[in-house]
Design a protein around this nucleic acid. Sequence first.
DNA 1: CCCTCCGTTTGATCTGAATCAATGTCTTTC
DNA 2: GAAAGACATTGATTCAGATCAAACGGAGGG
Lengths: 248, 248
Amino acid sequence: MPMLDTVSFAAECGACPIRHRAVCARCEEDELSRLEDMKYYRSYQAGQTVIWSGDRMDFVASVVSGVATLSQTMEDGRRQMVGLLLPSDFVGRPGRASAAYDVTAATDLVMCCFRKKPFEEMMITTPHIGQRLLEMTLDELDSAREWMLLLGRKTAREKIASLLAIIARRDASLGLTRPSGRIVFDLPLTREEMADYLGLTLETVSRQISALRKDGIISLEGKRHVTVPDFDALLEEAGDDSDGGMLS
Amino acid sequence: MPMLDTVSFAAECGACPIRHRAVCARCEEDELSRLEDMKYYRSYQAGQTVIWSGDRMDFVASVVSGVATLSQTMEDGRRQMVGLLLPSDFVGRPGRASAAYDVTAATDLVMCCFRKKPFEEMMITTPHIGQRLLEMTLDELDSAREWMLLLGRKTAREKIASLLAIIARRDASLGLTRPSGRIVFDLPLTREEMADYLGLTLETVSRQISALRKDGIISLEGKRHVTVPDFDALLEEAGDDSDGGMLS
DNA sequence: CCCTCCGTTTGATCTGAATCAATGTCTTTC
DNA sequence: GAAAGACATTGATTCAGATCAAACGGAGGG
C-alpha cells in the first residue's frame, strides 16, 4: 500500500476548513463530487453528547473543529475515555449499525458527516477511500496501544506529563516538526475528563498538575492555559522512550 | 462496505490449516494463486522472540497455530502487553518499515508470512484484501479500547476474570455461539505474562487466581489447566456490562 | 533418588493513589 | 455586586496493590 501522506481522509470533504483542503490527485472527479453532495455538517456545544453507546448510528463523520471524546462506562459509573478526537479524526465504523462508545463534545465542535449507506457503497467503488481509512485506523490502533502502556504501567505524574505532551503536540498543529523549547496551549479537557482519560481520580490529576507546576515543568494561567518552557523536560517526565508516535 | 463475515483474511492463504480454509467467492483466481505463491511459513518455540521493536520487518503474517504476544517496554524495564495474537490474527503494518512492538511466541507458534512489498502491491490491485484488513483492524481497535477500560478502571480481581473470559472464549473456538455453563481450557500465558497484560505484578495475579479458586469461580488442575463451572458467574466477576465483544 | 531451576504461592510490610472532606476561585445570573 | 453553581485545589486518612522476602512444587538432569 502506498503512503498517502498528503491526502488526508478529509480530502474527500472538499470545502471543509483546516486539513480538508488537500486535493487527492488520484480520485475521479465525479466520485469526489458525489461525496461532496453526500456531506452535511453538525455542530455541538461543549459538554453536549453527540451519540450514546448503543444508539443507532446511520452516519460516519470527520471532526472539522473542536475536540470530542470517546468513552465507555461500566454499570456502576466507572468511566474510561478510549479516544480523543481532534480535527481530521474520523468517527464511526462502516458496517456497524450502532455506536460502540459515548461520543461527547469536549469543546464546541463541528463535524462533517456522511450518511453511512452511500458512504459504504462509495468505499467499494473508490478503493483509495478504504485505503486511507485503513491507514487512519492503524494510526489509531497505535495510539490506543501507546495508551495501554500509559494506563497499565505509568505513574500518575508520568500520565499527566504524557497527556500534556500529546495535547501540546496536536493542539499546536505542529505537523511533522518535532516540537522542542517553549510551547503554549489550552487544555480542552476538565480535570475530571483528564482523570477519565488517564485512569485516575480528578483529585490526583489536580495534585500532579500542581506538582509539575511547583517543579517548573509547566506553568498555568487560569485553569486551562498552559505554558511548557522546555518540551523535552516534559517528555522526560512522561517516561517516553521514543518521540511518542511522530514517526510512521 | 459489505460485511465479509465468512471470509477471514487468512482465506487468501489457501492451504493453511484451521480458519484458513474458507474460500472467497469474490476474488479472481489468479490473484489468489499469486498470494499462494508469495506465502511461506515460520515456526517458533515457546518463549522465542519473533521480532524486536525497531527491527526491520519486511513481512506481514497471520498466526496459523499457537499464541503470540505484542508488547512494549519502557527503558527501566516496565513492560505492557498490547496485544494477544491467536490463530487467524494478523501481524505487521503495511507501509511501515520496522516493527513497533516486540512480538514473542507465548506457546509454540506457526505463522504464515508474506513479503511486504508484493503484499502491498497486491492490496492495491485486489481491494477486498484491504477491505478485509480494515475490518480486522477495526476489530482490533475495539479490543484495544475494551482493554483500555480494563487497564484504567477495573480492579485486580475484575482484570483476572476478564482475561480468563477472553481466553476461554477464544481458546474454546466457540465462534459466535455465546458460551455459558462449564468451560475448560489451558492458559497460554505464565503468571508474569498475565501480569504484563493486565498492568499488575505477578504476585497480585497469583493471589487473585487463588481468591477466584477459593470462591469457586474457577478450579485449577496444575498451573495451567482451568475449569470454569459457570461462565456467567465469571463474566459477573469481570464486571462486563456487555458480552465483551461478541457482536460486531 | 536427590539436586537444581523455574515458575508459583503465600506472607509481611510499604506506598501511591483513592476516598472523604473542606475550602477556594472563577463565571453566570439576576 | 451579591448569590449560586460549577470547577479546582488542598488536606487527612484509608486501602488496594506493589514490594520485599521466603517457601513450595513439578520437570529435567546427573
